[in-house]
Amino acid sequence: MYTYEDGLAGTEFNYYSSFKDNQGLLYFGGLNGLTYFLPQDIKVNPIVPPL
């Protein structure tokens, strides 16, 4: 789960407030502002958490 520490403007987003530009950047509008990122920049965490 992503939170403020990961750079999200908030954890609640508005319906119909998303956009993908021609460079692939994704935008999401929420109650506390705008969050945007490139999906290919998301890194997979190779560390398996203990159960």
Rank of each mutant, 00 (worst) to 15 (best):
residue 29 G to D: 03
residue 7 G to W: 04
residue 15 Y to R: 13
residue 21 D to W: 02
residue 36 Y to F: 13
residue 44 V to D: 12
residue 34 L to N: 05
residue 30 G to V: 01
residue 21 D to R: 06
residue 6 D to V: 01
residue 25 L to T: 15
residue 14 N to G: 02
residue 24 G to P: 05
residue 9 A to V: 06
residue 41 D to F: 04
residue 6 D to S: 07
residue 20 K to L: 11
residue 37 F to H: 00
residue 40 Q to A: 11
residue 24 G to F: 02
residue 39 P to G: 09
residue 40 Q to T: 06
residue 43 K to C: 00
residue 13 F to G: 01
residue 21 D to V: 07
residue 30 G to Y: 06
residue 1 M to I: 08
residue 27 Y to S: 06
residue 51 L to Q: 13
residue 45 N to R: 11
residue 46 P to K: 13
residue 51 L to T: 14
residue 24 G to L: 00
residue 45 N to H: 05
residue 3 T to R: 13
residue 42 I to Y: 03
residue 34 L to P: 00
residue 41 D to R: 09
residue 48 V to G: 00
residue 4 Y to H: 13
residue 5 E to F: 00
residue 5 E to A: 11
residue 17 S to T: 05
residue 13 F to E: 06
residue 10 G to W: 04
residue 5 E to H: 05
residue 31 L to M: 12
residue 10 G to T: 03
residue 16 Y to C: 12
residue 23 Q to N: 12
residue 37 F to V: 03
residue 37 F to L: 14
residue 11 T to H: 13
residue 16 Y to K: 12
residue 34 L to S: 00
residue 43 K to Y: 03
residue 15 Y to C: 08
residue 8 L to F: 04
residue 10 G to D: 12
residue 48 V to W: 03
residue 49 P to K: 12
residue 17 S to A: 15
residue 35 T to G: 03
residue 42 I to P: 03
residue 5 E to T: 00
residue 16 Y to D: 14
residue 31 L to E: 14
residue 21 D to Q: 02
residue 25 L to Q: 15
residue 44 V to C: 00
residue 9 A to C: 15
residue 23 Q to T: 09
residue 32 N to F: 08
residue 14 N to F: 08
residue 50 P to F: 13
residue 22 N to Q: 11
residue 17 S to E: 07
residue 5 E to D: 14
residue 38 L to G: 00
residue 13 F to M: 13
residue 46 P to S: 12
residue 33 G to I: 02
residue 39 P to C: 10
residue 5 E to L: 05
residue 2 Y to W: 13
residue 10 G to N: 08
residue 48 V to F: 03
residue 2 Y to M: 09
residue 21 D to E: 02
residue 17 S to F: 01
residue 40 Q to N: 15
residue 12 E to Q: 08
residue 16 Y to A: 13
residue 46 P to Q: 13
residue 15 Y to Q: 12
residue 8 L to G: 05
residue 43 K to S: 08
residue 2 Y to I: 04
residue 33 G to H: 06
residue 17 S to C: 07
residue 34 L to Q: 04
residue 7 G to S: 05
residue 36 Y to A: 09
residue 18 S to Q: 14
residue 5 E to I: 00
residue 30 G to H: 00
residue 43 K to T: 08
residue 21 D to G: 06
residue 16 Y to R: 14
residue 41 D to Q: 09
residue 8 L to C: 10
residue 48 V to R: 11
residue 2 Y to P: 01
residue 44 V to H: 08
residue 50 P to C: 00
residue 26 L to V: 14
residue 3 T to L: 05
residue 23 Q to I: 04
residue 42 I to H: 09
residue 43 K to R: 13
residue 31 L to H: 03
residue 48 V to K: 13
residue 6 D to T: 03
residue 37 F to G: 01
residue 50 P to G: 09
residue 28 F to I: 10
residue 34 L to C: 08
residue 20 K to F: 06
residue 21 D to H: 06
residue 6 D to N: 14
residue 22 N to R: 12
residue 48 V to E: 12
residue 19 F to T: 00
residue 48 V to N: 08
residue 11 T to C: 06
residue 8 L to D: 02
residue 12 E to K: 10
residue 10 G to Q: 02
residue 46 P to T: 09
residue 35 T to L: 04
residue 7 G to R: 02
residue 35 T to K: 07
residue 40 Q to K: 15
residue 22 N to I: 09
residue 28 F to C: 07
residue 31 L to A: 10
residue 23 Q to D: 08
residue 42 I to E: 09
